[in-house]
Amino acid sequence: MSEIVVALAGNPNVGKSTIFNALTGLHQHVGNWPGKTVERKEGRLLLNGKTVTVVDLPGAYSLAARSLEEQIARDFIARGRPDLVVNVVDAANLERNLYLTAQLLETGVPLLLALNMTDIAASRGIVINPAALSAGLGVPVTLLAASRGEGISALKATMAEMLARLKSSKQMREVAA
């Protein structure tokens, strides 16, 4: 049985590590990416009785890989073949964040959009309709204010749902093949 891998990806400073910490707690391993000086953080999370490995990717504005951090994120998504990518975006600066989201969608990797910093967005009167965003992008959307611990259980529930669905469709493909 192969392990389930979920990667957290997003622009710099959007709250990826805050979410990573909330998901994995003390079950973390910090090292370096092979041959690189960039920190690699990996942790474990129990979802519906299954162990899921969560990887905290370095911040990236683009998958075109112009910085070392972007190269690492791109390579992991393209070659590491995570089962699911949680794209963390800043709800207070949504537009600029969606550039990377569009690129992630193009890779075809299963994607979940985690709209973080909703507390800041709300304080500025920014109202986001998650259902419309989800319908427009064709991916599930969950809301968080991760530094306050808000939205973490909903995120876990959506991750579990998606992983279960992805697993059964994979099994169906295998049976059909």
Binding site: Y61, S62, A64, R66, E95, R96, Y99
Partner: peptide, 13 residues
Amino acid sequence: AHRLTELGFVPGV
């Protein structure tokens, strides 16, 4: 120009 756009320098901002 492409890189600046990726970083968020989009006309109108």
